[in-house]
Amino acid sequence: MKAFILKLVKYIFIVIIITNVFGWTGDFILRKSSFFKPSFLLNNYNRSEQFDYFILGSSRGLTTLNSGQIDAELQTKGVNLSMDDTDLKTQLLMLNHFFKNGYKSKYCILVLDDITASQSKLGDNDYKFSPYIKKDYVTNHFKSYENTPLKPLYNSIYLPFLKYSYYNIQMIPPVLIALVYPNKRHRFDKNGNYTYPSLINSKKNENKSEVTTKIINPLVKEIQTLCKANKTELITYIAPYRDLEIRLPQNDKVINNSASIKEYDLFYDAIHVNSEGRIVATNKFIAYLKHKISGTK
């Protein structure tokens, strides 16, 4: 039996070594690439430079505000750090990633979706931060929200292969792509934006349903505090919805564009504008930001 156990241990050891060499290499390749947003930020922007603004949000932040259009119009320097399939938890993580890596910005534009609460489980795209697992803010995030028994992202601090095993479809192909094309970006342009195509829309314009609510998500407060600590002004923005108008109390300092676009043709689906809608939505936002910038100058 001793020989059997020794053989078993030998095989387990070999497998752990090989898999973790792959894990460390994968992390290294992803950290040196532009494939996911966290490494895109670090590898494409100088940490000593100051941004005028950066955009945080989910897919609605990613596809509604075009930082390229804003920069061209206002001669500013901005970047869109929104990631699809994320909520405020991940946006707070991105904010930490931004500040802890030494970046500075005058404004943080938060494209707010989860007004009242966020889910308590890990976001679907949070694994994109996993190559930075050794950074305390990433470790703490995974520790707090990962609720699978194995906790593959959190435990990948010790065994990097765990995340490549659990998120194999999501992470192994990017490693292989990034190995060959380190500058390849995953569904965003050189400014971090993405847009949905303008499809022929068969739906006719209808009246939007109204929801009256208040911003009570505690994470908004956390984001606000973090921004303040880093001398960044938080601008909260609600992107257009096709069928919904969100009504907020007057004293909530929010750019509420939820009902700013009436035409169905400018939407890709109920919550995302299309490429034409993005131009309209961004223009409306530019008008606000222009006023804001001139006001502070």
Partner: peptide
């Protein structure tokens, strides 16, 4: 071959 099968299982398995 055995190590290869283990590695394939670990990296191609639908653990999620």
């Amino acid at each position: 071959g055995l190590v290869a099968v283990i590695l394939l299982t670990l990296f191609l398995g639908a653990f999620k």
